[in-house]
Amino acid sequence: MTGEEKFARDLFRDGTSFSKSVADLAQLPDDDVPEIAFAGRSNVGKSSLLNALTTKHGMARTSNTPGRTQLLNLFPVGEPPRMRLVDMPGYGYARAPKQVVNAWKRLVFDYLRGRRNLQRVMLLIDARRGVKAVDEEIMDLLDEAAVTWQAVLTKGDKLKNTGPVAEGVAQAIIKRPAAFPGVAVTSSEKNIGVDELRVTILDAARS
Rank of each mutant, 00 (worst) to 15 (best):
K56W: 07
H57F: 10
H57Q: 12
G58Y: 10
G58M: 11
G58R: 14
M59D: 01
M59L: 15
M59V: 00
M59A: 05
A60G: 03
A60P: 01
R61F: 10
R61I: 07
R61Q: 13
R61S: 08
T62G: 02
S63A: 09
N64H: 10
N64D: 11
T65E: 07
P66D: 00
P66G: 06
G67K: 00
G67D: 00
G67I: 01
G67Y: 00
R68D: 03
R68L: 14
T69K: 00
T69D: 00
T69N: 00
T69M: 00
Q70V: 08
Q70C: 06
Q70N: 11
L72F: 01
L72V: 04
F75W: 00
F75Q: 02
P76C: 05
V77K: 06
E79I: 11
E79R: 14
P80Y: 08
P81G: 01
P81C: 04
P81I: 01
P81E: 00
M83I: 05
M83E: 04
M83Q: 06
R84W: 06
R84M: 09
R84Q: 13
V86A: 03
V86K: 01
D87K: 05
M88L: 14
P89F: 02
P89Q: 00
G90F: 10
G90V: 10
G90N: 09
Y91H: 04
G92F: 01
G92Q: 04
G92Y: 02
Y93N: 08
Y93Q: 09
Y93H: 12
Y93C: 07
A94W: 02
A94S: 07
A94H: 12
R95L: 13
P97R: 04
P97N: 02
P97V: 02
K98Y: 14
K98N: 11
K98C: 02
Q99P: 04
Q99K: 15
Q99E: 15
Q99N: 14
Q99I: 11
V100P: 07
V101E: 09
N102G: 03
N102V: 04
W104F: 13
W104A: 07
W104V: 11
W104K: 12
K105H: 14
R106I: 05
R106V: 02
R106C: 02
F109E: 15
D110P: 00
D110N: 08
D110M: 02
D110W: 01
D110H: 01
D110T: 02
Y111P: 01
Y111M: 06
Y111L: 05
L112D: 03
L112E: 03
G114D: 14
R116A: 15
R116E: 15
R116P: 14
N117V: 06
N117Y: 02
N117Q: 13
N117G: 07
L118T: 07
L118W: 07
L118R: 08
L118V: 09
R120A: 12
R120Y: 11
R120Q: 14
R120L: 10
R120P: 06
V121I: 15
V121P: 09
V121Y: 09
V121W: 09
